[in-house]
Measured scan of single mutants.
Amino acid sequence: MTYKLILNGKTLKGETTTEAVDAATAEKVFKQYANDNGSDGEWTYDDATKTFTVTE
């Protein structure tokens, strides 16, 4: 399945997607991506749209 990440950071904004077997796997990928790019904030997940959002 395709999962989407929306970044609403102070310095990093945008979207990216990943293919993953489940939401937990996608979350690990996205959290590593956000960490690698210095983005940290409040995470939410919408199962209906398969979208993670991180807001700083």
Rank of each mutant, 00 (worst) to 15 (best):
1 M>L: 11
2 T>Y: 07
2 T>L: 13
2 T>M: 12
2 T>K: 10
2 T>V: 13
2 T>Q: 08
3 Y>I: 03
3 Y>K: 02
4 K>P: 02
4 K>A: 04
4 K>G: 03
4 K>M: 07
4 K>C: 07
5 L>V: 03
5 L>G: 01
5 L>H: 01
5 L>D: 02
5 L>A: 02
6 I>A: 03
6 I>D: 02
6 I>N: 03
7 L>S: 04
7 L>R: 02
7 L>T: 04
7 L>I: 14
7 L>C: 09
8 N>M: 14
8 N>F: 13
8 N>Y: 13
8 N>P: 05
9 G>M: 14
9 G>R: 06
9 G>F: 15
9 G>H: 06
10 K>L: 14
10 K>T: 12
10 K>Y: 09
10 K>H: 11
11 T>L: 12
12 L>Y: 15
12 L>V: 12
12 L>N: 10
12 L>A: 10
12 L>I: 13
12 L>P: 06
13 K>V: 10
13 K>H: 10
13 K>D: 05
13 K>A: 07
13 K>E: 05
13 K>M: 09
14 G>T: 14
14 G>R: 14
14 G>S: 13
15 E>C: 15
15 E>M: 12
15 E>T: 12
15 E>D: 05
15 E>K: 06
15 E>Y: 14
16 T>A: 11
16 T>P: 02
17 T>D: 04
17 T>V: 08
17 T>I: 07
17 T>N: 05
17 T>G: 03
17 T>S: 10
18 T>W: 06
18 T>K: 03
18 T>E: 03
18 T>Y: 10
18 T>I: 14
18 T>P: 01
18 T>Q: 04
18 T>M: 09
19 E>I: 15
19 E>N: 12
19 E>W: 15
20 A>P: 01
20 A>T: 04
20 A>W: 02
20 A>K: 02
20 A>G: 03
20 A>N: 02
20 A>S: 05
20 A>R: 02
21 V>Q: 11
21 V>P: 15
21 V>L: 12
21 V>H: 11
21 V>W: 12
21 V>K: 12
22 D>K: 02
22 D>H: 03
22 D>Q: 02
23 A>P: 08
23 A>M: 11
24 A>F: 08
24 A>H: 08
24 A>C: 13
25 T>R: 05
25 T>G: 07
25 T>C: 08
25 T>F: 06
25 T>I: 06
25 T>S: 13
26 A>Q: 01
26 A>M: 01
26 A>L: 01
26 A>F: 01
26 A>V: 01
27 E>C: 14
27 E>M: 14
27 E>S: 06
27 E>T: 03
27 E>P: 01
27 E>F: 15
27 E>Q: 11
28 K>Q: 11
28 K>D: 05
28 K>H: 07
28 K>C: 08
29 V>Y: 15
29 V>L: 10
29 V>Q: 07
29 V>T: 09
30 F>Q: 00
30 F>C: 01
30 F>I: 00
30 F>Y: 01
30 F>N: 00
30 F>L: 04
30 F>W: 01
30 F>R: 01
31 K>A: 05
31 K>G: 02
31 K>C: 05
31 K>N: 03
31 K>P: 00
31 K>H: 07
31 K>D: 01
32 Q>F: 05
32 Q>C: 06
32 Q>E: 08
33 Y>I: 07
33 Y>E: 02
33 Y>N: 01
33 Y>T: 03
33 Y>K: 03
33 Y>Q: 03
34 A>L: 14
34 A>V: 15
34 A>P: 02
34 A>Y: 08
35 N>V: 14
35 N>Q: 14
35 N>L: 15
35 N>D: 10
35 N>A: 15
36 D>G: 06
36 D>H: 08
36 D>K: 10
36 D>M: 12
36 D>F: 12
37 N>R: 14
37 N>F: 14
37 N>P: 04
37 N>C: 13
37 N>H: 14
37 N>G: 06
38 G>E: 06
38 G>M: 12
38 G>C: 11
39 S>E: 11
39 S>C: 15
39 S>P: 07
39 S>F: 15
39 S>Q: 14
39 S>L: 15
40 D>G: 10
40 D>H: 13
40 D>P: 07
40 D>C: 13
40 D>Q: 13
41 G>M: 11
41 G>C: 07
41 G>P: 03
41 G>Q: 05
41 G>V: 05
41 G>N: 06
42 E>N: 09
42 E>F: 13
42 E>I: 14
42 E>M: 11
42 E>G: 05
42 E>S: 09
43 W>I: 03
43 W>A: 01
43 W>V: 02
43 W>K: 00
43 W>S: 01
43 W>P: 00
43 W>D: 01
43 W>L: 04
44 T>S: 12
44 T>N: 07
44 T>R: 08
44 T>F: 11
45 Y>N: 00
45 Y>A: 01
46 D>F: 04
46 D>H: 05
46 D>G: 01
46 D>R: 02
46 D>V: 04
46 D>E: 06
46 D>C: 09
47 D>L: 06
47 D>P: 14
47 D>M: 07
47 D>Q: 09
47 D>S: 11
48 A>C: 08
48 A>L: 11
49 T>D: 03
49 T>P: 01
49 T>F: 04
49 T>W: 03
49 T>Y: 04
49 T>S: 09
49 T>K: 06
49 T>V: 04
49 T>E: 05
49 T>L: 06
50 K>F: 08
50 K>T: 03
50 K>S: 05
50 K>Q: 08
50 K>I: 02
50 K>W: 05
51 T>W: 01
51 T>R: 02
51 T>L: 03
51 T>Y: 02
51 T>K: 02
52 F>R: 00
52 F>I: 00
52 F>L: 01
52 F>M: 00
53 T>R: 06
53 T>I: 07
53 T>N: 04
53 T>G: 02
53 T>Q: 05
54 V>E: 02
54 V>Y: 11
54 V>G: 01
54 V>C: 10
55 T>W: 11
55 T>F: 08
55 T>M: 07
55 T>C: 06
56 E>Y: 14
56 E>G: 08
